[in-house]
Amino acid sequence: MLKDWKLHIIVLFFVLIGEAIGVKQFNLGVGTVALFPMLYVLIMGGIVSFPKLKLMNETQMKRAAGILGISFLLFVAKLGSMLGPSLPKIFDAGVSLAVQEVGHVLGTIIIGLPIALLIGMKREAIGATFSIDREPNLAIISEKYGADSPEGRGALGVYICGTVFGAIYLAILAGFLGSLGIFHPISLAMGAGVGSGSMMAAASGALAVTFPNDAEDIALFAAAANLISTILGTYLCVFFSLPVTARLYEWLEPKIGRLRKEAAK
């Protein structure tokens, strides 16, 4: 991984350009969109790795993905070093931290499953909406239904979308929701701890840009929420999310299916 100097030099170059450009905010009237170095380097990387340009080969891209996993650990260590001195603050928000995790778990199912059925998905909907479909969730669904089942394909589809635009989308969503002024920055920070590395980094970054005075607290609570998602996520997924989504599907599918047929007439 280390030997691929081309890869690291590109990253260094992007990071320096990205940091030099710095933060830019665009006012859309209803709210603002926050642009910041993380997004620039992500987009620059996406362009360079675009297959048609042939600037990078498959092996290099796989290596980049491998390094992504390791580099995220440094970010985790940094966030951990912010947690230590702030433990009283975190315990103080303990109830919110516990309850927000319920929101992370239910949030994908509550709106995801009905909309999936309304637009005509079948059993793919179970895999697509039972979680945010990152690596551990993919393992769970392939164990239960098989990777090539409709459920497995639904999960893999959301996984691929998440990899391709999850971080950018969450950054824009977090920055926009933040600028509306409905939610407190700390609640939004907890929301940002979705349990996926790059998505959490990008979403909390967008919030830190939107609320510069609360940047430290945002990192702190996003990290705490993300840690809870990581620790509990897999268990909740196996024992709660997946069985509940499957049950809800059996119950909702005939009803929404009938609605769709009537609408078609």
């Binding site: 170095p37 992500l42 891209m61 992504l68 580099s71 005509g120 793919e124 589809g157």
Partner: peptide, 30 residues
């Protein structure tokens, strides 16, 4: 913390290309 996250996202960007082909095959619903 943001400075530490920027290189992560750069590597994420550089790995995107490998998923573009599978992404193109996905339907609009997903």
């Amino acid at each position: 913390f943001m400075a530490l996250a920027t290189p992560i996202l750069a590597y994420a960007g550089l790995s995107l290309g490998k998923d573009i082909e599978s992404f193109k095959k996905l339907g609009w619903r997903i």
